[in-house]
Amino acid sequence: QKNDRQQTLKLAHTLNIDHPVHKALIYMAERLKEKSYGAMAIDIYPSGQLGGERELIELLQIGSLAMTKVSSSPLEEFIDEMKVFSTPYLFEDNDHFWRTLNGDVGRHILLSGESVFLRGLGFYDAGSRSFYSVNKPIHTPDDLAGLKIRVQQSQSAIQMVNTLGGSATPIAWGELYTALQQGVVDGAENNPPSFWSSKHFEVAKYYTLDEHTMVPDIILISQYTWDHLNPQQQGWLQSAMDESVVYQRKLWAEATEEALEAVAAAGVEIIRPNKAPYQQKVQSAAASAAQNQPQINKDIINKIKLLRK
């Protein structure tokens, strides 16, 4: 079925094939094929077979890979603007979050990587990140004191957890399960579907839905590939992308629901705390965190705050 004129884009990501992101990407590939009458196709490489997220971004810059799905957090190393998302309690709620991403601010952030050959096509939902702990339930920020909380290797993640009162501990992701089990760390933080699929709920029996950050996933295309497409092809790709975003948000909501039910059924105590003390805790600290941000990000943060209701 592949003919010479067919434009095939290779897309790699690190999630497994049951993940909402993978299903949404397949949907995008189908929509693109239909819209372009078979002239364009996307080959998807799941499960990290072509590399980790940071490395996939580099492959886009090198030009040997066309597209990828990454979290905005490894993108911080490439694009300053992405650091905005690690500010705790920047968004009031889901609605505020999507109003921002679907508006001018979101568009600006997607295109902010153009100078480093990375063009954002759209945002996927990756929910809110919350704390989970092994021995001690976390009800208020005070309960975080002295707890070693695993974070990703990034300055902003470390700052975020320390701000909330925990003791940020970078641990390699592959070692986290045993680190939790054996008590090297007391807890970690992630969104419900990842808490479920990583099986960390088998060890960590308390999940506190404090929802401190909302860090979206981003679909990137290599600027080389994008420039190589004609305007019609760009249009097809963008509209297939936009349709898959809607579809993915629906899948994500379902996955979140299912994950929370499943971990609860597995004996995890789900704590829905009063978020006010957490927000107060970061109020002063968030301002100082914003001080460390580049000027351009302070402007973005201000614009995001203006979008609050």
Partner: peptide
Amino acid sequence: YKLMALTLSLKQNSAALGIPM
């Protein structure tokens, strides 16, 4: 060298140490 030059010119910095990749 290409990889090194690319990551230097595109200013990719490591996550924790903040040194150029």
